[in-house]
Design a protein around this nucleic acid. Sequence first.
DNA 1: TCAAGTATGGCTAAATTCAGCCGTATCAGA
DNA 2: TCTGATACGGCTGAATTTAGCCATACTTGA
Lengths: 126, 126
Amino acid sequence: MTYICTMYEKKLPVQLECGLHLFLEVTSGKWKVDLIWCIHSGIKRPAELHRRLPKASRRLLNTQLKQLTDHGIIIKTIFEQRPQKVEYQLTALGDTLIPAIETTARWGEAHRHILEPLILKQSPSI
Amino acid sequence: MTYICTMYEKKLPVQLECGLHLFLEVTSGKWKVDLIWCIHSGIKRPAELHRRLPKASRRLLNTQLKQLTDHGIIIKTIFEQRPQKVEYQLTALGDTLIPAIETTARWGEAHRHILEPLILKQSPSI
DNA sequence: TCAAGTATGGCTAAATTCAGCCGTATCAGA
DNA sequence: TCTGATACGGCTGAATTTAGCCATACTTGA
């Protein structure tokens, strides 16, 4: 078995019946939505994205940027100048994702006062 | 360390800055959206839900139903008759989730023709 | 009594995602 | 030449989620 770039060959089938599964397949990943949002906001370069999301490891950001690229959400442009320069931007498909993200984000904000304590409870002790 | 019901005590902090993280925190889970949708459609009892989602193990369905309950999305009613009977239904909060789910599902369906081949590619071989 | 339906959870291992260390390469400026 | 900036990915192990086997307890009907 040969892997590229720490990518994992899926052994269990992916669920794609419902459109929402497609949405989750694209957006699930610790920093993916943040990356989409940053790029949408004009933050284009890898180092710049990492400065904006300092809690993420550069390693994982690269991995997820690669996945978003593979899923057609963003596009990577490599400027073959010296020194090398890279920029990401949303594709047309990525642009269509923005309103959907805004909808779910508004839902979360509207119910944050209820959700936050419930999520943080997570009953760790007995 | 004592756990209940195979629940896992989280060791890494949860991200809740953005409202979308709240949405994902609630909906991420292999069968959660399906469960929400089935319950929304009037399928209320555990065995009935399992028949509708035969590819899911009853074990995992129970776990995710418990999490949805803990997050205030559904409510569990136990009828103390013989034999015991259980019914789930959406809470008021759960009801508000439906339009958000519909939005993302519509996004997925609208772009399925592009997304599906890209997701299935997942370059497993070199 | 035996099967089959209801409901539930303990347990182990597999699958998957994430964290973090370290190494590579190129280029600019002190 | 040393430092720091750009960019990238191999590798290991921890954290987390999911799969699947098996056991429990109750009730109804054959």
